[in-house]
Write a protein that binds this DNA or RNA. Structure first.
Lengths: 148, 148
DNA sequence: ATAAATAAGATTTTTTTTATCCTATATTGG
DNA sequence: CCAATATAGGATAAAAAAAATCTTATTTAT
């Protein structure tokens, strides 16, 4: 029930690239150093981000990574799911066939509901906002208020 | 980013106890059989549920588990957190000291926001509702709010 | 060509999760 | 009281997932 470190690293990486400007190539080592990400591990993560179309990997000397998509068009959800795959809170939702209960069991509807909500929340915030540090100030609407 | 099997088992266990009536003692093996939970593993899970005050463990012949709290007073969140501890989506929220960024980093505000929302969602549904199978019918309003 | 980078596959290490084994203890019924 | 039935609880094992690293290959700037 936790966001993996790989995902956290991916978010940091995108954020760093965003801060450095969309088209700019930034070296892997530089990103790793400033964002405190194990260098080789970042390499693996970058591969996934590239596969998802979020960044481009530039090889060779002076190589590195380049953000392909504007920060405002990348949601936190995009980043998370680029690394961990689509969010599912439990197995039964993903593989209904593997659980005889799913058709009748109301619990699974709940998991699914929670899942949808979580994905919506993460989908609402983009990296432009994150860069501005404004993410904390928006109201959290809905019945079970907890503002902030 | 997934609900563990232990948590799923705990939910099934509570649900089974709830269906059998609040005060009733139900044998561990019976629960395990009907809810398809490895018997010994259920024993471990029951210990945690007992520690959380949700059930009572009855030893000896004719022993088993007894629901101590009315189904309508047990939320899904109670069940989840009885097993996995309080939900945190990432480490930095839980141990801010371990992450130098947390004070300034807007990303963490987002994780926290998502976390609060998830906890609210799970907190809004109790086992009485789950028993009735009504959980699927509540509207999930708008993309950002989700009242109810 | 050489140096500087990253790629990509394989592998290792660590952590978490899941499950089981074994001995102890409690309870029921005869 | 005794035997049978159940769960408790600590220890341990097995499996899976996550995190990290090693190695060799490839690409690019100068």
């Amino acid at each position: 029930m936790r966001i993996t470190r790989a995902t956290e690293y991916a978010v940091r990486c995108i954020l760093f690239l965003a801060v450095n400007g969309k088209g700019e190539v930034v070296g892997r080592k530089e990103i790793a150093k400033y964002m405190e990400i194990p260098g080789q591990f970042l390499g693996k993560i970058a591969q996934q981000l590239a596969k998802a179309g979020l960044i481009e990997i530039v090889q060779g000397a002076k190589g590195g990574y380049r953000l392909l998509v504007s920060p405002e068009k990348i949601s936190l959800l995009n980043a998370v799911e680029a690394i961990s795959g689509e969010i599912f809170l439990n197995d039964c939702i993903m593989r209904p066939a593997s659980c005889r209960r799913s058709a009748t069991c109301s619990v699974h509807c709940l998991w699914e509901r929670a899942r949808t909500q979580l994905r919506n929340t993460l989908g609402e915030v983009n990296f432009a906002k994150l860069m501005e540090g404004e993410s904390c100030f928006g109201p959290l609407e809905g019945s079970s208020r907890q503002g902030r």
